[in-house]
Simulated scan of single mutants.
Amino acid sequence: MGTALALLACTTHAAEPDAPKVPEYALDTSWPKLPLPNHWALGLINGIYVDAHNHLWLYHSPELVPKYALGAAQNPPTGKCCVAAPAIIEFDEAGNVLRAWGGPEDAKVQGYDWPTAGHGLYVDYKGNIWIGGSQTRVAADGSPPDGLYLKFSPDGKFLLQIGGKGPSKGSLDTTMLSGAAAVDVDPATNEAFIADGYGNHRVIVFDADTGEFKRQWGAYGKPPTDLKIPRYDGGPTLPKQFNLVHCIRIAKDGLVYVCDRLNDRLQVFKKDGTFVTEHVYEPMTRGSGSVGNVSLWPDEKQTFMVMNDPGNFQTVILRRSDLSEVARFGHYGTWAGEYHRNHQMEFDLKGNIYTSEDHRVQKLRIVNGVTP
């Protein structure tokens, strides 16, 4: 079963002659299978990603499950519901939970730093899981900033830590991150490209197995800077510095897409950091910005991209060849099919879209027969 709430809100732009037909979507209410097992409850959802098996991986913060929802976790229990789910959960295509692991207690056992404020999940070409953290200053409870990215096996074995806990050392330092938001690993070089963007203002690249620093760049491929530059005001002059580097995605043809969220733009680079082009979307958007993340359509040419627009509570379909919009839909709300603090959107291997919000993931299925 599904509802056409998302589809009915869709605005499709005029297509060029012979242009590929654009997919249209409606909410799939059958995903995931509910309730979750073991009386699990979710905290803030930090990241989602679809792997090579078409499985959805979800990363959330168990420590942020509301206390009123943890009755079953008390000793003695104060209610039948609930307990915090492990931090990393794998779902199959039908929405069944396959495995789950991770969290601060696992970090203590295996001897690595767990993110204070989790952010981003990525599954690399070897099946390994990457997560980061977005906190950039000491919190009210004394918890330290996040200057790290972590890599695990699919079963949760700790493999690599890049950086560590603590304050930023600046956007030119190669030993620490600062509020890193996302990562993509290039199969051709086994390099990890990190969007180091909540605190720093750069893309930084490391060897994905050793953590050895390779290179870095800021907006327009220039050296990154920490100068206090205002966010984009919608005018003709675009900022020369990133303002919240929130996503990074590498296409099959080697182009690297970087979301400059609070500047409402997508910048494109070669893998060596050479600037190629940029595109601004909804330039008068303030608040959360209009360019949250992008995901690539799973055909050979990666014809389309889906872009999350958090400032306008919308899903945007782009034509990758020229970064133009071909469809836009969605609006604010807490009902099924609406968006509440939409944070990330990802294509699966069939072109369906998963969307994440603070405490839920929704699946949008294709309804007009378009296939990758």
Rank of each mutant, 00 (worst) to 15 (best):
V245Q: 07
N200M: 05
P187H: 13
G234V: 07
I250K: 02
T210E: 03
V203A: 01
Y220F: 15
N200W: 01
Y220T: 02
V256W: 00
H201T: 10
D196F: 01
D253V: 07
A188N: 12
L244P: 01
K270C: 07
V205M: 02
V203S: 01
A192R: 00
Y220K: 12
P239M: 06
F206L: 09
K228Y: 07
H246M: 02
F269T: 00
I229F: 07
R249D: 01
V183I: 15
D233L: 11
G273P: 14
K222F: 11
V268T: 15
F242H: 08
G199Q: 02
Y257D: 11
V185H: 01
I248L: 03
A192E: 00
E191W: 14
G211I: 09
D207F: 03
A192V: 01
L255V: 14
T274S: 10
V183Q: 01
L227V: 05
T210N: 02
I204L: 05
R231V: 08
R202C: 03
K240V: 06
G235V: 08
E191L: 07
T237H: 14
G211V: 09
A188T: 13
D209T: 11
V205P: 00
F206Y: 13
K270A: 12
V258F: 10
V256Y: 00
N190K: 15
K271R: 13
G199L: 04
G211W: 02
Y198Q: 11
D186H: 10
L262Y: 10
C247R: 08
C259G: 10
T210H: 04
D184V: 05
R249E: 06
Y257R: 11
G273C: 10
R231L: 03
A219F: 14
G234P: 05
F213K: 03
D184W: 03
R249H: 07
V183A: 06
D260P: 02
K228D: 12
V256L: 11
K271C: 07
Q267H: 15
I229M: 09
P230T: 10
I248T: 00
P224W: 01
E191N: 10
A181L: 05
A219G: 11
I229R: 04
V185M: 08
G235K: 08
Y198L: 10
K222N: 13
Q216V: 06
P223A: 12
Q267W: 08
N263Q: 12
D253P: 04
F206P: 00
C259M: 08
T210G: 03
D260W: 02
A180E: 00
T274C: 04
A208W: 01
F206G: 00
V268L: 11
F242G: 01
F213L: 12
N243W: 10
P239V: 09
L255T: 11
T274H: 03
V185I: 15
P236S: 15
V268K: 07
